[in-house]
Design a protein around this nucleic acid. Structure first.
Lengths: 339, 339
DNA sequence: TTCGGATTCTGAATGGTTACAATCCTGTTT
DNA sequence: AAACAGGATTGTAACCATTCAGAATCCGAA
């Protein structure tokens, strides 16, 4: 039903090659250019991307694998990636692993089958072996937010350790010594941030008390429960570091519910603001991630790899990997008291 | 680099047609079956979906257009759609409109260009004209969550009016007469829910006071500000209806901050629970949407249309449209006081 | 031998791109 | 003025990986 390049040929009397050339930005005589344009207009012609993809061996589509679509963080990054890609005329095929590595493996295989030009992965974690099908097919991959411990790959991550350490140092400078952390050590970023917390405490010669380390996962629920536990301690810390947005939310809810106010009764430093910031009477002091930069840089590096591959005639090899480490910045709220 | 069906031919000595037939489930002699399987194994052959798509004129990909990827509601629905599609061997091409109709129009065009087999749209709103390219290309479309006012299309929606009316009736049965609503009348679901509120009030012969209708958008911020406004009224309502999850969040935060407790000081009925439910000491009574059903039904109806189209060999015509209206159910929390 | 069902093969088709050959055109040389 | 060089434009035909009618072949039974 939709018109093809052959209809344009019949309409203009030109050859397929000439039309194709013009459609791809080549030079043709002015009068032919007009003929083609008129025919395209008249027949509502649109290039068939599938057919084009078959011969050029490229789909102008990148696969994006996320560990959890329902996560706000993922949402924001997807948004930015989609924006960047659409500027470049690329589409994105999104697959969701629901934090399940088996699913992730299937998803990667699926993307490879769909012949995506590249893959951006916000990995579940675990082993980089899930990416093997992509490597076997010479499809460039860029990691976002998390890295693998067993293999070095192109990646964009946050300076998680420095960020957490910075937050802790700020608390220390403000006079705090008894500092608790609500964290998720088994998650990649959670682990890194805990390590940052730890080294800052150690550098300052401060004790890390066992009951001040509330380990769980990056969720509102964990933040809420952990904060309640902290409030019940006979020897309360004077400050708390929350290592994730979900945890922030839970912390604030628990504080409100217990009618404990910050920074008067306890100081809080969190990670990421998002919509929370619009609502609180006293804004939280948080380490902010440059969310949009994740998406932008991810697309940028991936495109670089895709182009390199084209120049190498399809072979994907380069020496070494690009690891971009984004800086967080401290957003000053009013949730830390000087003591 | 990856092996093609021709490599299988060279390996087995069979013809392309026979191999293709077997690969698509046809009958071949046992010895040939073995040969093919061995060759496939040896060469790691995978069908090239692009080439197959070119000739079968189907991509086994559906386009999903969402009004905002960063919205939790969208995230959950995407998750479910992805799950269903992957069971069927379909992929999803997600495009994000950021609540911008111009972008939505571009996105639809993009999906059409990518030759998706069908489109599921959680529309921004406005005019159904944005879908014209899809109709022109005979691509089936199913609407989720929202409908257009200017054209009837296949859709899955919630019984928004009944849901809101049910919530209000429950408040009325509990003895409330002064009921406020925090809503978003310019959004599709918000409008419907407000209408439900209105008719329930009118049926009960209750007055809708202007200062009890807090109109804005479906956001935490609006819920927060509106609740604060309500608390400042000299003649406070005894109950509040929140028409959206974001609003719920803001309402709870405002109440906590003002140290007004529910249901003692004021009763609250909301929409949707999500992670909020894990956290509150007193759970909110809410109208719950069957989120997963949106995704499931959406995929189901779309597949039905795709198959109908195949049977009609390529023509997309059917008499009438399917409108599935999902029922919400009331989740009893403890946020409503009998008075 | 013939018939007929099952299987296999041939070759066209899908909608484009692209290397290379052919043609056109203009300006320069003889 | 004719011949020619050479760059720009156009056309021819192969190719991409697959599917699918329809023709050809095979094989066992009658």
């Amino acid at each position: 039903m939709p018109s093809t390049i052959k209809d344009i040929r019949d309409e203009t009397g030109l050859s397929l090659a000439t039309i194709s050339k013009y459609l791809n930005g080549g030079n043709v005589l002015p009068k032919n250019k007009e003929k083609i344009e008129a025919a395209v207009e008249k027949l509502h012609y649109q290039v068939n991307e599938i057919a084009r993809g078959l011969v050029t061996n490229s789909t102008r589509t990148v696969g994006v694998s996320v560990f959890d679509v329902t996560d706000v963080f993922n949402g924001i990054i997807l948004h930015e990636i989609g924006l960047q890609l659409s500027h470049l005329g690329y589409g994105m095929l999104i697959v969701d692993s629901s934090n399940d590595q088996t699913r992730e493996e299937k998803n990667i295989r699926f993307l490879v089958n769909k012949k995506v030009d590249g893959i951006i992965s916000l990995p579940v974690a675990g082993s980089s072996a899930v990416l093997n099908p992509a490597f076997a097919a010479d499809i460039p991959v860029v990691l976002l937010d998390r890295q693998y411990r067993d293999r070095s790959l192109d990646s964009i991550t946050l300076n998680n350790r420095e960020a957490a350490a910075g937050a802790v140092n700020y608390l220390i400078e403000s006079g705090h010594k008894k500092i608790a952390v609500i964290c998720a050590r088994k998650e990649y970023t959670g682990h890194e941030r805990y390590e940052g917390f730890k080294s800052a405490m150690e550098n300052a010669g401060l004790e890390i008390r066992k009951e001040y380390v509330l380990d769980g996962n990056h969720s509102m629920e964990h933040g809420y429960n952990a904060m309640h536990k902290i409030l019940k301690l006979h020897d309360r810390p004077t400050a708390v570091l929350s290592t994730n947005y979900g945890i922030n939310l839970g912390v604030v809810m628990a504080l409100n519910e217990a009618q404990v106010s910050y920074p008067e009764d306890i100081s809080v430093v969190g990670f990421d603001n998002l919509m929370l910031s619009n609502v609180l009477k006293t804004q939280l002091t948080v380490m902010e991630q440059p969310m949009e930069r994740f998406g932008q840089k991810g697309v940028e590096i991936l495109m670089q790899r895709i182009n390199e591959k084209k120049e190498n005639n399809g072979s994907l090899e380069h020496d070494g990997h690009i690891n971009i480490v984004l800086s967080s910045r401290m957003h000053m709220g009013g949730s830390v008291k000087k003591i």
